[in-house]
Simulated assay, not measured.
Amino acid sequence: MSRPQTELATQFHALHHDGLLLLANAWDAGSARMIESLGAKAMATTSAGVAWSHGYPDGDLLPVRRLVATVADIVRAIQIPLTVDAEGGYSDDPAAVAETVSGLIDVGAVGINLEDGGQDPDLLCAKIEHIKRASARLGIALYLNARTDVYLRGLAPPEQRVEATLARAARYRAAGADGLFVPGLTDEAQTRAIASEAGLPLNLLARPALPSAEVLQTWGVRRLSAGSDIAQSMYTRMSALASGFLRDGDSRPLGADATPYSQLNALFEGR
């Protein structure tokens, strides 16, 4: 039996204030159900993985109807909170973005990521305000994770990035954001400064330079996302298997590391 959406939303908020939330991002219902079965406390999508699975490049180019349909499929397959990578909202019109997010809420999402990219912070603030009003009308306490690309895109000189990030965080918090996502941030001192001064739970993107989850928690980090890395690794493995088979038709590598059919099929029974 599916759990009430309001209950899932409350749980998702709470997960950002109790230790470090680890999110292994999924791209479809099957990957989400597999990750849930491994003990995930919540689910997140990767915009890149979702776009690629439909044959589109990442970057606000996926048709919204396909995103909503994917989210509906994932919600049907899992029983834990789901947050959706909504990129920049697929529009520069805050009202249109709020309409898109309302559609995601309608099919069961309880959180979103929304990014500023290279655009003026004023635009993201307006989007956040419209979305929060829309979610309130729908009766869902949507967790809005505001992503700033100060580090990822180098929007400020290295010595000014903490200050620039905190300035944006203050504006996004005032607009109604519930969390702050800073992909590309890996330095300990800078992470500690942002975590302590942003006034929002800090989300980082997995990077080889980052330490373990246990250490990140001591830095003040409250959420760590795998991003598109799992999807990318899956495509690498698929490419290796398919290219080998197409080259020589050898069947043996195809099933060497395969999860048994019966085990995979059982994941979806009753869903």
Score class of each variant (00 low, 15 high):
6 T>Q: 15
9 A>R: 14
12 F>A: 10
15 L>F: 13
16 H>V: 06
25 N>I: 00
27 W>L: 03
27 W>C: 02
28 D>Y: 05
34 M>K: 05
37 S>M: 04
43 M>V: 05
44 A>P: 00
45 T>V: 03
45 T>R: 02
45 T>W: 00
46 T>Q: 03
50 V>R: 02
50 V>C: 06
51 A>S: 10
51 A>F: 06
51 A>H: 00
52 W>Q: 06
55 G>R: 08
56 Y>Q: 05
57 P>G: 12
58 D>H: 09
60 D>E: 07
62 L>T: 00
63 P>F: 04
66 R>T: 14
67 L>D: 00
69 A>D: 15
71 V>K: 02
72 A>Q: 14
73 D>N: 13
80 I>D: 11
80 I>A: 13
82 L>K: 07
83 T>Y: 06
85 D>I: 08
87 E>F: 09
93 D>I: 12
95 A>T: 13
95 A>R: 14
96 A>F: 14
98 A>S: 12
99 E>D: 14
100 T>Y: 10
103 G>T: 03
107 V>S: 01
107 V>D: 03
108 G>R: 01
110 V>S: 03
114 L>I: 12
115 E>W: 04
117 G>L: 07
117 G>Q: 05
119 Q>T: 12
124 L>F: 01
127 K>Q: 09
128 I>A: 02
133 R>V: 10
138 L>C: 06
142 L>H: 04
143 Y>E: 05
143 Y>A: 06
149 D>N: 09
153 R>Q: 13
159 E>Q: 13
159 E>A: 12
160 Q>M: 14
160 Q>V: 09
161 R>G: 00
166 L>K: 08
169 A>Y: 02
173 R>N: 06
173 R>K: 15
176 G>Y: 14
178 D>G: 12
187 D>R: 11
188 E>Y: 03
190 Q>G: 11
192 R>C: 08
194 I>K: 02
194 I>N: 01
194 I>F: 05
195 A>G: 08
196 S>D: 15
198 A>N: 07
198 A>F: 06
200 L>I: 05
201 P>E: 01
205 L>N: 00
209 A>D: 10
211 P>L: 15
236 T>M: 10
238 M>E: 11
239 S>I: 07
241 L>Q: 10
249 G>C: 07
250 D>Q: 14
251 S>V: 14
251 S>Q: 14
254 L>Y: 04
257 D>A: 09
260 P>H: 14
261 Y>A: 07
261 Y>R: 15
263 Q>N: 11
264 L>P: 01
